[in-house]
Design a protein around this nucleic acid. Structure first.
Lengths: 196, 196
DNA sequence: AACGTAATTAACCAAATGGTTAATTCCAAA
DNA sequence: TTTGGAATTAACCATTTGGTTAATTACGTT
């Protein structure tokens, strides 16, 4: 692994766990096992390093989900695939939601403006929903509201993990069990909401 | 307004907007229009000040919701009241979710341990749900999963506000409209999910 | 008016932090 | 083997930041 990669990986973890303000350049260097000056050698400044990582991470939010989703015919199936794929992604990067949300709330939305697949979201997701509603295949719910609800339900456990853990008396196993069963449960909710 | 109140109010806003790490004692002092030394005079340290504010804020999360909810007979009605009350609360403190979530993820859960109404949540909410399920009054969904879903749907727009604003082309009015209609939409979803 | 306590301020301090620099080491090409 | 640019390091720097202190002011009580 090259020094640059070491730095990137270390910075990634530090920023994800502690946020921009909470992260120290020295901590990144220590974690990467290299000299602090290397950080500035490869990435100009703390801001630049953070920016690079954030840009890379935000692209993860909507990865190949698009393609997976497009394969499915019915809208309900599309949503189900979305929930599955999204859950897998978040399991791989549990801090991603917190990271993105704190960042976008602190700094302006200039950061993710280019990378949010708004077009896909509006022209494809929303459009295909309108279509099935007018065909009477699904119930007439507000597409935007529905989308934010699915996102909220999917993301919440990853954001509120400490609180949820506390509710289940700190029992990790129960928490994992809960997370595992969540995908099926959410798919059920979606069917209840959308099936006419 | 006493100096202590001025400090508390200013600190509240600073911490809520910028988080613990992002907040500067000087910024609090400036915002309160007083000398920085007063912060330490009234509240020992940054940590102590933050702690006091956090403890006060976290109690807000489950305010008198309990009582409002208990009045209602059917479980669906209970959930509907919860959504309404919760939405009003969050409208008043839009940064509350972000504040609580970032804090509980950074520091341990010692902070909110005492103040999370776990007992109410388990013994009352969950219990009353089990009851209605066994009576066949609502569909058999997992109570915990359902609770986290309602919370997630309720809280999401307050966390992802910048992203949502971006989706609606930065149009504030559309966003407000969306938020206003959200309560009814969520109540609808709950009925779809729970009604047998 | 004098006294004493609480409130307030300006100046200061030590530690932490992001960033720089000059010197040194590596290493591949000539 | 020499050489030149890239990689790496230790030491250093300026600024920021949470916190302290000694002195001053405000103000209710006797």
């Amino acid at each position: 692994m090259t020094t640059e990669e070491k730095i990137f990986l270390a910075a990634e973890n530090e920023f994800m766990e502690k946020g921009f303000d909470g992260t120290r350049m020295q901590a990144i260097a220590d974690r990467a096992g290299i000299n602090k000056a290397m950080l500035h050698y490869y990435f100009r400044s703390k801001d630049a390093l953070f920016e690079k990582i954030f840009q890379e991470k935000i692209k993860l939010i909507f990865p190949k989900i698009g393609e997976d989703v497009k394969k499915k015919k019915s809208f309900i199936e599309k949503v189900e695939v979305f929930i599955e794929t999204y859950y897998q992604l978040l399991s791989q990067y549990p801090f991603l939601p917190l990271f993105v949300i704190t960042t976008m709330n602190k700094k302006g939305n200039e950061h993710f403006a280019k990378n949010l697949p708004v077009d896909f979201f509006r022209d494809f997701f929303i459009a295909s929903m309108f279509e099935e509603i007018s065909q009477g295949k699904i119930k007439a719910v507000n597409p935007l509201q529905f989308a934010f609800s699915v996102l909220g339900m999917s993301v919440f456990p990853f954001l509120a993990r400490p609180a949820i853990l506390h509710v289940v008396n700190g029992n990790q196993e129960i928490f994992e069990e809960l997370m595992k069963g969540r995908v099926e449960e959410l798919k059920k909710y979606v069917r209840y909401i959308l099936t006419p």
